[in-house]
Design a protein around this nucleic acid. Sequence first.
DNA 1: TACTTTCTTTATAAATTCTTTACACCTTTA
DNA 2: TAAAGGTGTAAAGAATTTATAAAGAAAGTA
Lengths: 226, 226
Amino acid sequence: MNNPEILIIDDEPQIRKLLEISLESNDYKVWQASTGKEGIIMAANHPPELILLDIGLPDKSGHEVLKELRAWYNKSIIMLSVQNSEEDIVTALDNGATDYLTKPFRTAELLARIRAAIRRNQQTNNLSTILNFNALQIDLTARTVKKNNEILKLTSTEFNLLTLFVNNEGRVLTHQFILKEVWGVGFQTETQYLRVFVGTLRKKIEDNPNQPKYILTESGIGYRFI
Amino acid sequence: MNNPEILIIDDEPQIRKLLEISLESNDYKVWQASTGKEGIIMAANHPPELILLDIGLPDKSGHEVLKELRAWYNKSIIMLSVQNSEEDIVTALDNGATDYLTKPFRTAELLARIRAAIRRNQQTNNLSTILNFNALQIDLTARTVKKNNEILKLTSTEFNLLTLFVNNEGRVLTHQFILKEVWGVGFQTETQYLRVFVGTLRKKIEDNPNQPKYILTESGIGYRFI
DNA sequence: TACTTTCTTTATAAATTCTTTACACCTTTA
DNA sequence: TAAAGGTGTAAAGAATTTATAAAGAAAGTA
């Protein structure tokens, strides 16, 4: 088992050192940042298992950092603060903090709360990525497509084709490119496949397949999804 | 949305009353127990969304109650105590408590921690022991399956397969993935096993195995449970 | 051992999906 | 107006995938 990684975002070097020592002696791998901005960048580049976030940062408040992180980071974030203000606690928890500890904290308690938070991380669902396009809802991990909340039945190739389209929304994809991506190298000339499959896809996802809203044809070039 | 249910296990009537008032005015449905034993029975009969558990109970310690609950209950349990002992906190968290608050607690903070805990409940894998799907009732710990309240006889492999399906409801599972999870690494190519077992499972759980409602086949990819 | 249950394998029928063909349509250009 | 090039649609046939039964092998049980 590799050691869980913890990112400390705190501007006080003493606190960081203290945390580093206790965490590393408990087999965590520790990363450190001294400003909110730096912390966000580090978390984005290398998402840790848990973040310890100080409320009092020099560049922006911990609350703001929390909000920015929570836009995409869904593992545990434990807030630390010298303030024992109830308002701070409530705000932090409601903004998605996992826990809140006031400094000076007791090391054993902090470690226990970290263990509890990491344990919970592991039970958390890896939420699936769902994309919405008007009445269309595409779940890439579940491989489902809904139109007005009704599940559509797509064949494997149809779904792969649709996936390619939604991953390249707005872009014109050439016939060759699509054929290579969906069918594989060696199929680049089979343009008729594409026509047939775009046809069946449109029949399923478009309200009016004659006047497609999602899959537009770029005559002479390929198709474009919007 | 129906109101989340919270079970209070505490022997002090004043505390219970205080909690009842704050919780009910925040739209929670409140259940109360004054002893550990009573609390466990109530939780078993009617599993709440969250349990507030006092450490100092007359019949058995809150730590013991916590352990007994955690044998099967995996939603949030917040411990309450007059003790601010670090040892107590560490023990509680390591035994699976979601959070720990010392009395006297501040109401707004308690409510925020309850919200955070309930929010997390909804993200965690609901490994609750009994799952219902229409006429199907699956008890994961007892390893029994009922259809219209009649017990079905499944073999071990059939049950493992069904468990995998219900834990990934709505998601398309590839043949390879299913084979790896149920049979183990090295069986990924034995697609025919899967066909046979899906066949027998359908014969047992479906009303009409020719037109399956639960286990749908995703031709070319795998299967999906709904 | 004999018996039952479960798992694995094989064979074949059925269903689904993919490929190919044919042809109609549209737009552009001579 | 006709021809040419690209596109859309339907439908038949081919290929692949899936379902089911049933027999043999293995494992568990009395």
